[in-house]
Simulated scan of single mutants.
Amino acid sequence: MSRATLTASRTSHTRRPALRPTRHAVPWLLGAAVVGVQIAFPLTGGGTPAMTVAAVVLFALASVGHALLTRGPAAAAALVLVAGGGGLLVESVGLATGLPFGEYRYSGSLGAAVLGVPLVVPAAWTMMAYPALLVGRRLARALPLRWGHLTTTLLGAWALATWDVFLDPQMVEAGHWSWLDPTPALPGVPGIPVSNFAGWLLVALVMVALLDRVIADRPAADDALPLVLWLWTFLSSVLAAAVFFGRPSVALVGGVLMGLVGVPLIVALRRHGPDLRPRVLRRR
């Protein structure tokens, strides 16, 4: 190798690491803003509608931005279409028919709506569906099972659906929506029908399965952000329900259900870090 070629190679290698943190700074800044807004929730008695919308929008932008930067425009577009568009569709059907969640009504406190559904709601599906997908993939890598997409779908869907055990009681108490018949309730979560959790799980299974097919499972060295945001949501929700919102039973039930994937995720990350590369690539 000539001296000029060696110098150019060294220059190229020294420049690349400097570009990557800069390119990925925006999603991390958005994620930090999410944490900041959510920390303020209990300090304001459960937050305001503006804070709720801000937290969801910032989180959704962080998820879409991360998908864009690590997996490309097609992945970001697929996320918005499947999670955002799918969330809007299923919520509008739910309002009209009561399926699959049960009969409920929005109060109008969450701002602009389409088909009766506040736009922040499909944004909420988008913000959590992406981290849930990556949680499912990360845990699927750590299991000895070789069920491929099925393992990811089951784990990712559980990671998404169990979040609602915390979300729904908080939003109902804040007056953002209400249930026409909240019985029978999920044990330990009064005021929220068990049909809602069943509906969330059904929708999450379909949504995560689709996302797992359309968003490439490619190597990514910086998938820490969505995993950290999912874990933050899990741990902070338990703390907020138990300490700040006076719902110890919700903290217990939600903590156990969400912890079925949350605790193994923490163990996997402590052992191996946020490595999401397919096994066949790690063997090389």
Results as ranks from 00 to 15, higher is better:
Ala50Met: 14
Gly65Lys: 03
Gly47His: 07
Ala62Cys: 02
Gly45Met: 09
Gln38Ser: 13
Thr44His: 09
Pro49Gln: 07
Ala55Ser: 12
Ala60Leu: 02
Leu58Glu: 07
Gly46Ser: 09
His66Arg: 10
Val34Lys: 02
Leu29Ser: 13
Leu30Met: 07
Gly45Tyr: 09
Val53Asn: 04
Met51His: 13
Gly45Thr: 08
Gln38Cys: 13
Ala40Trp: 12
Val35Lys: 04
Val57Met: 03
Val35Gln: 03
His66Tyr: 13
Gln38Pro: 09
Trp28Glu: 12
Ala60Pro: 05
Leu68Ala: 12
Leu58Thr: 00
Val53Asp: 05
Phe59Asp: 02
Ala32Leu: 15
Ala62Lys: 06
Leu30Trp: 03
Leu69Ala: 12
Leu61Tyr: 05
Ala33Gln: 08
Phe59Glu: 03
Ala32His: 11
Leu69Gly: 10
Val53Thr: 12
Met51Gly: 15
Pro42Asn: 10
Phe41Glu: 06
Trp28Pro: 07
Ala33Leu: 14
Val34Thr: 10
Leu30Ser: 00
Ser63Asp: 07
Phe41Tyr: 10
Ala62Val: 05
Phe41Cys: 03
Pro49Glu: 00
Leu58Ser: 02
Ala60Gln: 04
Leu58Ala: 02
Met51Tyr: 09
Val35Asn: 07
Pro42Asp: 09
Leu69Trp: 02
Ala33Val: 10
Ala40Met: 12
Phe41Leu: 08
Ala67Phe: 03
Ala40Lys: 06
Thr48Val: 06
Ala60Cys: 07
Gly31Thr: 04
Val35Met: 13
Leu43Asp: 14
Leu68Asp: 08
Thr48Ile: 01
Val35Arg: 08
Leu58Tyr: 03
Thr52Met: 15
Gly65Cys: 01
Pro42Arg: 07
Ala33Thr: 09
Leu69Val: 14
Gly31Ser: 06
Leu61Gly: 10
Thr44Lys: 09
Ser63Gln: 06
